[in-house]
């Protein structure tokens, strides 16, 4: 059963530090919050077979992914006592050193926010129809594999 509206998750390109800062600032009016937990995924310059990753290009099966993000959101609200929750994921090219995933949970006390944040990140990586293509400095590529 759906109790919350579907929210926009995908952002074209990197998630900027300004966007993250503004998102935090928006919560100052929600004075029942006592703890925020934030996860930021950053594109790493991995070395694979002597080649260095310069960016990851993300693609998705949008309808399937948006349904799954919604399901994860609903499940997290059900499971944890959260005041609010935001999930943002990049699509398209994100250069190394920049942010590609932003999960932001807020609750009265820290444990709920922290546990919910971890729960969401794990499920997003495992269950959402998004694919990362790691692009090397010489423009060849490989397909990203998520560690368990």
């Amino acid at each position: 059963m759906s109790t919350h509206k579907k929210k926009k998750v995908f952002i074209e390109g990197p998630i900027s530090p300004d966007f993250i800062a503004e998102s935090i600032a928006h919560h100052s009016v929600k004075t029942n919050i006592g703890a925020h937990s934030i996860f930021l995924g950053q594109v790493r310059a991995d070395q694979i077979d002597g080649q260095k990753v310069k960016a990851i290009e993300y693609t998705t099966y949008r309808e399937l992914a948006e349904d799954k993000f919604h399901e994860i959101r609903e499940a997290a609200f059900e499971k944890f006592e959260l005041v609010c929750m935001h999930i943002y994921h990049s699509l398209g090219v994100v250069p190394c050193g920049e942010m590609c995933l932003f999960v932001f949970t807020s609750s009265k006390h820290r444990k709920e926010a922290q546990d919910a944040c971890n729960y969401i990140v794990e499920r997003v990586k495992k269950e959402v129809a998004v694919w990362g293509k790691e692009i090397f400095e010489n423009d060849s590529h490989t397909w990203k594999q998520n560690t368990v």
Binding site: Y61, A65, C100, L101, V128, V130, W131
Partner: peptide, 10 residues
């Protein structure tokens, strides 16, 4: 029908 290789978001 969609063919879905292992997901690798985040």
């Amino acid at each position: 029908v969609a063919l879905l290789p292992p997901f690798s978001g985040g």
